[in-house]
Amino acid sequence: MRRKHSFVYNLVIFILAQLVWLSILLLWIYWYVKNNIIFEQVGEKASPQIVYDAPSVFPFVGGIVLLTGLSVSLVLIFRHLNIQLKLNELYDNFIANVTHELKSPLSSIQLYLETLNTRNVPEEKKKEFYGLMMRDSERLKKLVNSILEIAMMDKKKFNREFEVYKADETIKKIILESAEQFNLDPNIIKFSGDAGCDIMLDRNSIKTVFDNLVDNSIKYSVAPLEIMVKFKRSTKKTEIEFSDNGIGIPHDQIKKIFQKFHRIYDKDIPNVKGTGLGLYVVREIIKNHKGKVFAFSEGKGKGAKFKIELPIYTEKKKSLRGNKKDFKNE
């Protein structure tokens, strides 16, 4: 409500400012033309011999240029304000989502602790509760880390350990580790293709990339989940296609999903939890690896596909950080 009002308020101010500007411009022209005529008439009557010198065109043109500059500045300020409003809205959503994401595992931990403290819980159940609390604290840790990571990314401070790896072997291993972390059956992931090359990467951050992609696939699937990973290579880059059979991405959202804090709100989406940071982190990490990431989807209900392009490491190439690191074979 408040945001809608502030948008309308800005729009009204903008229109009023434009009207003021236009009026000044018209007055300016009117003043110039009128004065010009008076000068001409008075000059002719008083002394026709005197060579009439019209008011200089310079202040007139200069005035118009200044007024136009003012108008352009107003347009820019208006645009900037609207962007800021949009960001504020996204940020508010982010805060609400983060609050939810922090409070849910925290409530669960508190509930189990109070249960253990007040009830006679059988040993077997106790073990189960400890396990659930561990999962919740892991979830909290992951969330806190991702928020800290974002803060570092925004400041362009990266703490990366770049090393050379065999592309398909390493990526495959990382994806299987992510699957294990989310208790996914590894058989639902089908690998195909062959990259047959080396890439230089920071293993921890690439793990975060695939953790986020796998997590999204789980969140946004209704049928039994299937994940397909396809490796390809061209002369300079290797391609990793990560696709699933989930609910897909609406066409109008494809470009927006990598934006910070952006989340899709849709009635048919089976999961409403998240911070809107996952894919932003993915894009930033891949960018930091001098790569690119693209999203594709044939529409709602038709699965999502993410194509990641990473540069191939060759012996000639210097490391991304300037120091060549050891070759890692996993």
């Binding site: 939810h100 409070k103 409530s107 508190q110 509930l111 109070e114 007040t118």
Partner: peptide
Amino acid sequence: TARTQVEDRVKGLELGADDYLTKPFHLK
């Protein structure tokens, strides 16, 4: 719920919730 904003509370009560407890809550 994890939401603590007054608007949510008011909306919940207006739509007929009888009581409202915010997360994290005490079991007792």
